[in-house]
Design a protein around this nucleic acid. Structure first.
Lengths: 348, 348
DNA sequence: AACAGGTGAGCAATCGTTTTCCTGAGCGAG
DNA sequence: CTCGCTCAGGAAAACGATTGCTCACCTGTT
């Protein structure tokens, strides 16, 4: 017997998992021939190939990925770094990416930095040690973030930033279209005949709040309109703020006939406040949310018309760009914007 | 030059990442010696070790994990299979596990089956091909699930089931303590002087709903009490059901002074219904939720007293048991129950 | 009959580390 | 002076799959 089984008496089936050498021995060919039979490379008699494939079947052989990776230098793995837990925003992105990568036979290595840069460095080193084929970085906020750095060799691995773009325009980023989203919301309200529109949103230091507000205002201006209360109501991303701000809006501009909210939590707060004051939605005032977070949007009374950012699509596109960069060996820099989708429900 | 650089002119620093051979060449020792210097194995002159370590530093050398894994048979990776998306329940478990494993230098390979058994088989095969050191399986529900199966070689890899236990008692499972949780809730209500307690929960075909209900009833019986409405209100895990059921409770047993809810969504629905009927909480009726899902528990009016299942702890313990099994080479079968925590807020 | 061309299959190097075994130098003791 | 012991460090064999190269053999042609 030329090839020894990993364990067990000679001649007995190998105790551990079968190696290519076991397959080759069973098929009566050399290891190299067996490899070629599997990969389809090289020419050989159909009958020989048959014998090898039969042996593979019999032994339940599966190639050892470590050996393949060592040889090819590829790990068929990408790192997915989330900077702030795995929350409501990064989860769909993550799943979209995992889906797209899985189709390409690539697995996802999960790294959560909890917003800690020490941890980020640690994970980054780990990913490089594992020779990942690429990295997707995703954050909770749409504010730009500094690019990954600090590890030698990083320049040879493609990186895509999803949701939170990189501050370096030479990097690959995939972001949501806040302009388009705000536009969809404004357009929808105008199309349903509303003209006295208020805007309640999150903290001004969040890019998402600023951008959506700016674009909503611009969209209204193009229709010759202004915000009913004359200003944007910046605050928090919470229901409580939605309720408080709704009161303020009703006080300042009682003729308001629609409220566009920066997220679904605020929108839900607004619908609650309206209902408690006996104001009908959408009868008296229409409400539009943002995020299409079903827990909020569907539990609201009435259920919310809202903007869906297509987060899974963002993850999917990030993954596809990464795959392209991996295959091409070079990145196609720039920011890719993914359009939003208007989901109409009973609040408008 | 005995060792050729991967690319670039001879003598120039290697273009790719440095190999141990480069380190050895720079330090003027053999590859084997360099390896020993790094691992601390074997004896050698301190000065020689110094030279190797200096070379490592200079070249920024990091060992190739594929080569190490090929040699050791270990991948320093575990698979994390989630059976139903990555939702509210699996996320904390996942993070807890990732945290505990990260401390052990182990990375997490993420697999989402979307509840599809074809996908599960596919991911499982993939994990086996990658020679993962272990697998954690986590589900959304507390109902037992059939163990992983169908892939040869699986018996040599330790598996821990988190949240959803395996139906096979010989497997390792880590679950939440629904009995203790229901007990905490009931005890808390009794301690605050409530005696007419109702229970509103999710669908009867969910183990979580059944178990919490059963144990709550048993706990009340031990105090010589029964449910105020004489029965458990099974329904859905939704706010709308909470509101509807609250109405039913008020109709059936107007003297009810507390409601224990199967989750925070139901509890929130209950508080909303009470408020809309002018009934004070906790003044007239106290409300206890379950899950400590902050979006619900904190946004509720009043904020909810609720049961926290310590999901991250479940993930952490699952990871620790897996690490033990990996190190010991054998599993310690059985179900491990993780206690809940009572979080008191203004609703009681 | 000899040779060119084609084809099926094996050999061996390679990927980068770890680890075992072995050599040889140096030193102390008899 | 030599024997033997210690210890530093090197050589080489794993780990498992891939692949370029070589070789042997067979067919068809001159």
């Amino acid at each position: 017997m030329l090839v020894t089984a990993p364990a067990g008496a000679p001649g007995s089936p190998p105790a551990g998992r079968a190696r290519l050498a076991d397959v080759a021995a069973l098929a009566g060919v050399s290891v190299g021939t067996a490899s070629k039979a599997l990969s389809g490379a090289g020419r050989m008699r159909p009958e020989t190939r048959r014998r090898v494939l039969d042996a593979v079947e019999t032994l339940g052989f599966r190639p050892n990925q470590h050996a393949q990776s060592l040889h090819s230098g590829r790990s068929w793995t990408v790192g997915l770094m989330t900077t702030d837990g795995i929350g409501r925003f990064s989860t769909p992105v993550l799943l979209g990416a995992e889906d797209a990568l899985g189709a390409g036979k690539i697995s996802v290595l999960l790294c959560d930095t909890r917003g800690d840069s020490i941890r980020e460095q640690h994970h980054l080193r780990n990913l490089m040690d594992r020779r990942v084929d690429g990295i997707i970085v995703t954050g909770r906020r749409t504010d730009p973030r500094p690019p990954l750095t600090g590890i030698t060799g990083l320049e040879s691995v493609p990186v895509v930033y999803a949701l939170s773009p990189s501050t370096d325009p030479g990097d690959m980023s995939v972001v949501t279209d806040d302009k388009g989203g705000a536009g969809l919301a404004a357009e929808h309200l105008l199309a349903t005949g509303r003209t006295r529109i208020a805007h309640i949103t999150g903290p001004e230091h969040h890019a998402a709040a600023r951008d959506r507000a700016r674009h909503a205002v611009e969209h209204l201006e193009q229709a010759g309109l202004a915000l009913s209360t004359g200003r944007v109501h910046f605050g928090e991303w919470s229901e409580a703020w939605g309720r408080r701000a709704a009161d303020a809006v009703l006080r300042t501009a009682p003729d308001t006939d629609a409220v566009f909210c920066g997220n679904d939590q605020i929108a839900r707060g607004v619908t609650d406040a309206l209902r408690e004051r006996g104001i009908g939605a959408p009868g008296d005032i229409a409400v539009v949310g943002y995020d299409n977070w079903d827990t909020m949007a569907l539990a609201s009374r009435p259920p919310l018309t809202t903007i869906d950012m297509n987060l899974a699509e963002i993850g999917r596109i990030a993954a596809l760009r990464l795959l392209e960069a991996i295959d091409a060996g070079e990145a196609t820099p720039g920011v890719r914007t993914v359009p939003c989708r208007l989901v109409v429900r009973e609040s408008t």
